[in-house]
């Protein structure tokens, strides 16, 4: 891959990460390339699973929807030949599980979970997560307030206070 192509790809990715809804024509203008080239790169990166999806960041607190998010630390016994992957898979297949990470440090897996209520999350932990074979123990942390999520500060930005014209 030549250097320009790589630079273009990175610039596209950085832009899409923040503005996934940009239309292709505009993206091409911003990147300074032909529309076909931008489309090509995006299609290739989708195929290579570099681009894994186009998601929307939502502040559910501002809606009427009841939702709690929990971070759950999980300590597990790794399995022979399969390490942590088999246990991780058993966890991530649950649709209410939002994210699963293998973590360095004092526990092994970090599981992000979304549920309608504290009760629902607790029930998932006690009825589904803890009984999985190989899970040693769990610690559940409920998120009280999101200040910043996915690189976006959730507090509305102040109005610009710059002067209108300056030399």
């Amino acid at each position: 891959m030549n250097e320009n192509k790589e630079a273009l790809r990175i610039e596209i990715l950085k832009y899409l990460e923040k503005h996934s809804r940009v239309d292709l024509r505009e993206l091409a203008v911003l990147m300074g390339v032909e529309e076909a080239e931008a489309a090509n790169e995006m299609a290739e990166m989708e195929k290579e699973k570099i681009i894994c999806g186009y998601h929307t960041l939502i502040d559910w607190d501002k809606t009427g929807v009841e939702m709690v998010t929990a971070l759950i630390e999980v300590r597990v016994t790794p399995q022979r030949d399969r390490g942590f992957d088999r246990i991780a898979e058993r966890i991530y297949n649950y649709p209410e599980v939002y994210a699963v990470y293998l973590i360095s440090g004092s526990y092994d897996l970090l599981v992000t979970l979304e549920g309608k209520s504290l009760k629902e999350v607790s029930r998932f932990v006690s009825e589904k997560l803890s009984p999985i074979e190989g899970v040693l123990n769990t610690a559940t942390h409920f998120i009280l307030k999101k200040y910043k999520d996915h690189g976006t500060i959730m507090i509305p930005k102040k109005e610009s206070e710059r002067m209108l014209v300056t030399p």
Binding site: S160, M163, L164
Partner: peptide
């Protein structure tokens, strides 16, 4: 007014 007149970064 909307400005395109400022000589400093946003």
């Amino acid at each position: 007014a909307i400005s395109l007149g400022v000589g400093e970064p946003d």
